[in-house]
Design a protein around this nucleic acid. Structure first.
Lengths: 352, 352
DNA sequence: GCCTATAAATGGAACGTTCCAATAAATCAA
DNA sequence: TTGATTTATTGGAACGTTCCATTTATAGGC
């Protein structure tokens, strides 16, 4: 069906009766060629079914305009949103980013990074996989390729980071629960190999401290960052001698799991046990009951990351400022009514 | 920090005291070179911080080992699953696929396909965007690049398709509803620019016909294929003079929306109105009530598509058999109890 | 009509790799 | 030893593009 050998600019040149250089100029949209010539060439391009060979071009050109996005888990809508945000700004810049999925696997991540590098990417936006070793990005730094981290960061690294204000988000959510009258709280899910975990847990702890919750009443149950993990966390918490009455969850998936587990025990999320999630994924709003959660605007952070990347490429630098995105607590039904008015009919502080 | 100019095999050759050809052989893992030489070269590769230039290599090599996956909507967990399934088999084949997102936009899709082609991909797995014109893949066919469609197909096209048995899935689900005693049914969501829509709707209609439902009792409400669309569909249906009692939804998102709308009206999904979804996404199982849905095994279809692609590349062909994946109805709570026993205490057929 | 200035088109070298044919070195059979 | 064989290594051409320095065509000024 198709001519076996791929068409090159020479074929176009022959077809249009010009030189290869002229064809090249036309391809680059140079203003140097006469309009009629350009038209003739463009027709020939169509006729021979030409596809541009970017690899060959990059051999001469300083740098490509390919950007790689490395995502740790595409099935998590939270990260998919991030990717979509980035896509949006790249699209309007006429760039098609290539997305690689690492499935939270550092070995796979290494392969993906290597492959992207070999393609000669101009820059890389990465949401690093859990368990990424600090040295994993040394090669990229050596090669002078601009990199930005999105959502997650590595313990010691000079690579710029675009992430939400996890500490503040957790603080706000926890303060809200305490304000509702809860006095024994728990942090559900996540594990300490993630910097994000420490940030969120830190916010939780600080809120407990500054709002007069004793350290022994600020509990922590580690677990998978999934629905399943949330179920397990709740079981653990309720099995305690003195169970908590409210939970801040590492993310929304954990929160959904915890609510599910409550229901299975005949308890009503909100009324019997307060749940707050983190990330505010699209489902949160539609759950029963609707989930109170910390909104981080992942698509917005994606856009931000893309802009930073474009600027880095443009200014040929490998450094940039970190950007910490604002968060806000979206209060819905899962953290229930004010606890003071239920358990202790007369509060101490009055109207506040 | 890094040496500005990128290292090439010549730099490695100089460092290791061998010729560029030897370096090339080592890079390709040829058995021709003496082990000690190979070690020496590999050390040099490390030392100079070399990154392989695949573009240059592809200039000589017959074809690259890059495969592109073009997905119409990454934020839909259903398609994300598909991508993950493909990833899985490519990973074990030592291939890193590049994912491009088209956000259901044919224009963007054109850009993504063009960009992937320019990179010299060896093959393309595509879930085409809604509204893709029939000619959109002509260029690819001309270039002789193997393409397979996953999940979706185009009206008239000779490109091989890997997709679930939509007709049968819809038939099974509809028959189940009819078996439960429903006599006035509706198909919710989707629009006729999608081949999948016709397939599913066809299954619905066939089941109604063969199971003795009058044509005027087999209703159709088109709508967005989202939660929001589902809400709208339900409102429309209940506003009818003679409303249906059960709905087969185009996909799970529509089903979730319909259930939400039922709840808002104080109706209980399952008991008051039966809902069946399509795709069986992970959430379906965890919903309240759990959603009855047609499972299509999208990850499995992804794996299948990847295998077909690998085989096509290997055998240098652009043709392959279609593959229609088995489906099965997962009955949960959202289609409720048997209707006959509720509305007409004495059924006609006895125990069946 | 001639020289100069501008516009348009062109040939050649270079980019970093692979592959082939050729060379050099080592081994073996006699 | 010598020629034949095998094992390792190598130089050169080619891949499809860009970019620079030229060449050729067109127009302008006098």
């Amino acid at each position: 069906m198709a001519s076996r050998a791929k068409a090159t600019i020479f074929d176009i040149a022959r077809e249009a009766g010009v030189s290869k250089s002229t064809v090249s100029l036309v391809l680059q949209g140079s203003g140097l060629i006469r309009p009629e010539t350009a038209v003739k060439v463009r027709k020939a391009i169509e006729d021979v079914g030409y596809v541009y060979n970017r690899g060959a071009a990059n051999l001469r050109k300083a740098h490509s305009n390919v950007i790689g996005m490395v995502i740790n888990d595409l099935t998590n809508p939270f990260f998919a949103e991030l990717a979509v945000g980035m896509e949006r700004v790249f699209q309007s810049a006429g760039i098609v980013p290539f997305i690689g999925n690492t499935a939270e696997n550092p070995v796979r991540q290494e392969e993906v990074l290597k492959s992207l590098m070999e393609q000669g990417v101009a820059g890389l936006i990465v949401s690093p996989a859990r368990g990424t070793t600090p040295g994993a990005f040394r090669r990229l730094e050596m090669a002078g390729v601009p990199v930005v981290f999105a959502m997650r960061r590595l313990p010691e690294s000079r690579i710029p980071v675009i992430a939400p204000d996890n500490h503040r988000g957790a603080y706000l959510a926890t303060a809200h629960l305490i304000g509702k009258g809860h006095r024994r709280l728990v942090f559900f899910g996540g594990s300490s190999d993630l910097v994000v975990y420490h940030e969120r847990l830190g916010g939780f702890r600080e809120a407990c401290e500054t709002q007069g919750i004793a350290a022994r009443d600020a509990l922590v149950v580690e677990g998978e960052t999934s629905r399943r993990g949330g179920i397990a966390c709740l079981e653990t918490a309720l099995a305690m001698a003195e169970p908590p009455t409210a939970a801040l969850c590492f993310n929304d998936a954990v929160a959904f799991g915890a609510m599910l587990a409550l229901r299975k025990r005949g308890l009503e999320p909100g009324a019997d046990f307060a749940i707050v999630g983190f990330d505010d994924v699209a489902e949160a709003e539609h759950y029963m009951p609707a989930l109170t959660s910390v909104a981080v605007d992942s698509a917005g952070l994606g856009e931000r990351a893309a802009h930073v990347m474009l600027k880095m490429i443009q200014s040929r630098t490998t450094r940039a400022e970190d950007h910490i995105g604002a968060v806000n607590l979206v209060v819905r039904e899962s953290c229930g009514p004010d606890r003071r008015t239920r358990n202790r009919p007369t509060g101490t502080g009055g109207a506040a």
